[in-house]
Amino acid sequence: MGEYILEDPIVKVTNVSLKYGNQTILENIDLNIEKGEFLGLVGPNGSGKSTLIKTLLGLITPNQGDIELFNKPLNKFRQWERIGFVSQKANTINTGFPATVYEVVSMGLYSKVGLLRFLNRKHKRKIDETLESVGMLEYKNRNIGELSGGQQQRVFVARALVSEPDILILDEPTVGVDTSSVQQFYQLLTKLNQEKHITLLLVTHDVGVMTSYVSNVACLNKTLHFHGTSKDFQESDLSSLYGHDVQVITHDHEHGGRH
């Protein structure tokens, strides 16, 4: 996205490495995310995608390297409401939790509202608006566990969006969502990116569908193998980029026919 190049990146990962015990999970990762970008982070299962996300959100401390969010070093960063996050676990945990869609989405506002303060009418209107924008307003008072996987995913996106973040980070949001909803879901993300100018980081191990929606692609498998436009990615020879990793290659062939 050339027009944004003059601004500083929203996320700046410099030379990050991380180990669990002796096992190196991430190695010398450099990754910048520019304002307005729709970046797809792809890689096979176990390639360290979730670990990278958790690291740049400060949930895990890397062994080496620097992370800046909105030009602030991670340990000084406080404006968490500017980042919306839907974790990989979001669609599997706590579906039996007695909370309504409204209650779940309101959680996204809690840190913005602040400690010792309560939600006011403006906040409540914001929750309704956000539910509307993901097409879930009519389910407002339903129990979260009664919804389908795709609907729950929309609710979690609404929770991430309700604080009006500048960037939305989604870790494998379409796992457990049926195929027809996946297309709709990507369309929703495209709309958020193009109309609301929200920067998007979408993590997935499913290379196929995603490439036609995102603007840029980064391939991760311990190290970053590729980072460029979606077009270049589709034209590139994945097999050479991934070396010995067969999983992604077969994945690519499975879906390759559609493009």
Binding site: G58, E81, F85, L115
Partner: peptide, 23 residues
């Protein structure tokens, strides 16, 4: 009452709560 919203968020999803800046 004062910490209701933080307790609800932590109960629902501790990781998300901490990413959103809840102490």
């Amino acid at each position: 009452i004062l910490f209701y919203k933080e307790l609800l968020f932590l109960s629902f999803d501790e990781e998300q709560a901490s990413v959103s800046g809840i102490p």
